[in-house]
Design a protein around this nucleic acid. Structure first.
Lengths: 253, 253
DNA sequence: CGTGGAGTTGAGTAACTTCAAGGATCGTGG
DNA sequence: CCACGATCCTTGAAGTTACTCAACTCCACG
């Protein structure tokens, strides 16, 4: 791992965390039953798992935790969206990941017993469940299917990382952006008349951070696409008008 | 996932696999006890795990399996080195990973139940243990610490992927190469007089595939470093003469 | 109605790639 | 032992992509 010596990390705005933990009674399995992640688990396991969790509401713009902190918890997203931003020692940023309902956050650090590698910020108001490392590991030992679910989830995770890695080293910017937009549409798009809309605020800057391009290049590319009627929308708002055309741009032989 | 429609994948040379499975008796825990990966497991568990495995000897240049195949097994490296090469739909290659003793191979696909995403080729003569998916999943259920070990291992995996992802989108080629070489030295270097030697054949081409650069650029960069006395060696052979200098190149603010 | 975040667009340029040609090193078979 | 083909490596020159720098517009929101 590269040292952090070069420059003190800046962790975005220094706002205080004032998250709201819903107080009171233990949760039951019903809050997580619908999530794909838990589909192999039976009701009593679900109750056990949910019962050990603490729910948190995270307002837009707030972070679940911050890069560099020791991993004190792991989370699963119930609703909303997070973008995980990693800051390099030189102060550059990268969006390493987007997470939506059913995605685990922080598990990698918890299992590896290493500091969180990125800061996951709520892109929209979100709700997540939280467990302490020990609690969760105990749950895994108690419910083997949970282990398997974690492993499967991490597998998908790795696949995505490798896909992006491959893209970023073999593909030109325009294509990378096309892939990123298609992935976004798949993960977080909903149909509207005349296209698929990305259902959370997405700036050119974000797209740039996701593709390893600059804000400027992304803007130029999107402008060109807009003229061709491939995408639409403006200001933190993206609509895919012609997915086929975009797919062609992404895959062109 | 991008479709594979563009062009039929070429899988390198069409040599037949003539691997040698050591025949005969069940293995016992002694073959895996020394591996870091298994350090949380007790002797009876180790015997159980090793006993269910089949050892394979893989000569240099042979593949453990091929990209696109359904995952019929997962492996752990006992000795040797593999490089996992992914071929893009357009026919470009990327080295997504290097694996040495104690590393799992194929687990991601097995758990995700998706085709293998890359072809791991032995960079030197290697020995690996093999399990069928069902066997291994049963072992995990039987030995919770094994699950945990898998999860931890995948965690490190993800971290590395993210590090590379970040590097490849924020760093210039020279630095990416510096990081790659440092990582190599760390993972597979041994001290020799006047430096650290990478202990398996490593071509400029490989380095290029690992960093998303071209063979030519890598060659130029290494030539420059050689003149400065930072690295040495030739033809598939790399010696780090001045790790400090390289670290400076890699981290420079 | 002004302020700031978000986006656009142009001009210049650096970093890499591509193209091209040739040199070094290895293994193999005569 | 030497010639050979196959890899691997080097280096120059030309060409491109996408970045940097810079100025400007648009819009939302207080």
């Amino acid at each position: 791992m590269p040292s952090l010596s070069c420059e003190p990390l800046r962790h975005g705005a220094p706002e205080e965390r004032a998250r709201q933990a819903t107080p009171g009674r233990r949760l039951d399995g019903s809050v997580i039953r619908h999530l794909d992640f838990f589909k192999e688990l039976d009701d009593s396991a679900l109750d056990d798992i949910a019962g050990a969790a603490r729910p948190e509401r995270i307002p837009r713009g707030e972070a679940l935790f911050r890069q560099g902190e020791p991993p004190h918890a792991l989370f699963i997203v119930l609703s909303g969206r997070f973008k995980a931003i990693q800051v390099t020692p030189e102060g550059r940023q990268v969006v390493v990941r987007l997470a939506g309902p059913g995605d685990l956050i922080g598990h990698v650090s918890v299992f590896a017993e290493k500091p969180y590698p990125a800061t996951p910020t709520a892109a929209t108001e979100s709700i997540a469940l939280m467990w302490s490392p020990r609690t969760f590991i105990a749950l895994m030992a108690r419910h083997p299917p949970l282990s398997l679910a974690v492993v499967r989830n991490m597998g998908r995770f790795i696949e995505e990382a490798h896909t992006r890695l491959r893209e970023s080293s073999t593909e030109r910017v325009e294509r990378r952006i096309a892939h990123a937009v298609l992935r976004l549409a798949q993960q977080a798009g909903h149909r509207v008349d005349g296209g698929v809309e990305i259902s959370f605020p997405m700036t050119r800057q974000d797209l740039a951070l996701m593709t390893g391009a600059t804000l400027h290049t992304v803007s130029r590319v999107l402008s060109a696409w807009e003229q061709q009627g491939v995408v639409g929308g403006g200001r933190q708002h993206l609509v895919l008008r012609d997915p086929q055309a975009l797919a062609r741009i992404a895959e062109e032989c």
